[in-house]
Write a protein that binds this DNA or RNA. Structure first.
Lengths: 337, 337
DNA sequence: CTGCACTGCTCAATCGATGAAGCAAGAATT
DNA sequence: AATTCTTGCTTCATCGATTGAGCAGTGCAG
């Protein structure tokens, strides 16, 4: 048996006693403003040394209670299961730390109730800012923040009550569609309309991407089949089901696909793999989102990679300027390989 | 201009004034032990209603300062850029919340200094437990926790000073190797030794997987080529470089590969795609880790999927039993499709 | 009519860190 | 010698929530 009982925590009072001084001197030394408070450098050195020996760490709860700013920044994110959100979270943490902020992240599993509960918890922890990423009801969260003394921003999906930073979904989809149409022309020798699959018709991003999809077809003079716009949801199975239904009613699938996320693409690829169609009749694909393995799959798949660093730079510009002034919609161009 | 100045935060004193009662009654009501404190249900209802109207949220900093347990559980994770860690983080959050714990997660980018700094910060936030996932120096973190009044566990990579929960790397690699050898035999009609690629030879997991790799070859009476064990690091480029070097010195690559992570696999696949070898001479692959798109790639790739839920159940069993007693090594069997 | 139990609350100390205000002793100025 | 200034600290109130102790008022037994 090896009892690893963690020790009782050291406080500034313990350090003060060890150093034969007062807690307030210790506090002044440890947060670096001992010059302002006219503490001698001998005492400062002594206290610093003792603090190190004792492995002292401030009690943030006590410290933050006293201060007026928490320097905590929260983020709500739907899932960690794809490269887009993974990259958002990782970049967010790095950028927050670079600015001396402490990031807290929570995933809400696309569950509206969890979103609200998580937001409340974040407010309890005194976040100064709350970034709602891909939230189902961002305005609800903005209201909570407003009542709870925090500022809020929306990322990825826009809301109407706070500034929103999103991809240029229209422009990105238009370009992705254009590229995919040309890839298809190269392969088949003709301009043929694409199938749009994945996403929720009700959400802003999907609506804008469908608009870009339409515009790109128009640009090239291609007529869209209206029943080939399938905003069937994001889950992989939904995409597979939608393709099955299409084959049942029409006997085949278009030669080119616009897939609305890597999550949907997972369903599409699974379906294609098990489909009765021959390998050489595999469709040309464009995907709105990026994944490294997709880039390596047999198919040449065109991908629109959302500019995560660009979006988060915009977020932190606002956070640092402290300007939650008027609610803007900031659109960031996606990147093409 | 739309000044979204967040309001000053409501405290229990504000609520007490509004309800014409004392802060202590408000506190008792809001944390649900008003029965114990003999508050009438009329007053309880009144306070609850007012709190809701005001959008009150406790100040956790103040609350935690007073309580003895923080119910905060921290996790250090190297990256968010693959399905394994993504799944660990997501499952960790869910399980923590189910148990009334507040999870804080930080990624350390495989940077030893960041690991230590992040651990210190977590201690400042009064975590009760700190889970080090894939840490480069888990024992250092355990020491910090011990000094700082927290308990610690290691996940994914073991340490010597705290209980560690890891995959059964030996058993998993042995089974994965066996399956890959048989796949290769099915394809080529003969038992041929595999190439091991990826990971760091110095880390426990890679060493154990190499041991499993050897044992599986022995089991089937296949002789390993010693210079075909390439623990070249995890980054994709490292794997590609190692393969290039091999081709330069030997002119070709073995017909079967054991790839030590999806990250390394990314490099391997990239290299294969651009390699001069014909498509039908693509090697048979086994990968220690899982990714949904890999499962869909043209190749039949055998994958050992680490049992994230199983590992985290073991973590929370220990957390809940409060038993950091003796340091054990708990190994969880990976899952084969 | 006194004593005791019970109900329904309030008071005040406390958690640890912070910083404005103040104090004592020596140095410098008049 | 009397005064101001400067240095180097300490004291104490404060942040918001929690909780043991205590206090009025009512009900009921003896």
């Amino acid at each position: 048996m090896n009892h690893q009982r963690p020790q009782k925590k050291t406080t500034i009072y313990d350090l003060a006693e060890l150093a034969g001084t007062s807690a307030s001197a210790v506090s002044a030394v440890l947060n670096g403003n001992w010059k302002k408070r006219r503490i001698s450098s001998q005492l400062a050195d002594k206290i610093t040394k003792i603090a190190e020996e004792q492995g002292y760490a401030v009690n943030m709860q006590a410290s933050l209670l006293r201060r007026d700013k928490s320097r905590i920044i929260g983020m709500l994110v739907p899932k960690y299961d794809n490269r887009y959100f993974g990259s958002i979270v990782e970049t967010f943490e790095i950028m927050a730390r670079e600015r001396g902020l402490f990031p807290i992240i929570t995933c809400t599993l696309r569950n509206p109730e969890l979103e609200v509960e998580a937001a409340r918890t974040m407010l309890s922890y005194q976040v100064e800012w709350l970034i709602s990423t891909g939230a189902t009801d961002p305005d609800r969260i903005t209201d909570l923040c407003l009542a709870g003394g925090a500022r809020s921003l929306n990322l990825d999906l826009p809301g109407s009550k706070a500034t929103s930073i999103i991809s240029d979904n229209f422009g990105g989809a238009r370009e992705l569609t254009r590229r995919t149409l040309l890839n298809l022309q190269r392969k088949k020798g003709a301009l043929l309309p694409l199938l749009f699959i994945g996403g929720r018709g009700a959400d802003h991003n999907t609506a804008e991407r469908i608009r870009g999809f339409r515009t790109a077809h128009q640009d090239l003079g291609v007529t869209i089949e209206e029943h080939h716009i399938l905003a069937c949801g994001y889950a992989p199975e939904k995409a597979a089901d939608a393709l099955n239904a299409l084959v049942t009613s029409e006997g085949s699938v278009p030669a080119g696909l616009f897939v609305n996320s890597t999550i949907s693409l997972e369903g599409v690829m699974r379906w294609l793999k098990s489909s009765p169609m021959g390998i050489d009749s595999q469709p040309v694909i464009g995907c709105f989102d990026w994944d490294p393995f997709v880039a390596l799959m047999g198919h040449e798949i065109e991908m629109a990679r959302q500019d995560v660093a660009g979006m988060l730079n915009a977020v932190f510009d606002i956070v640092e300027s402290g300007d939650s002034g008027d609610r803007k919609l900031i659109e960031i161009q996606p990147i093409f390989a």
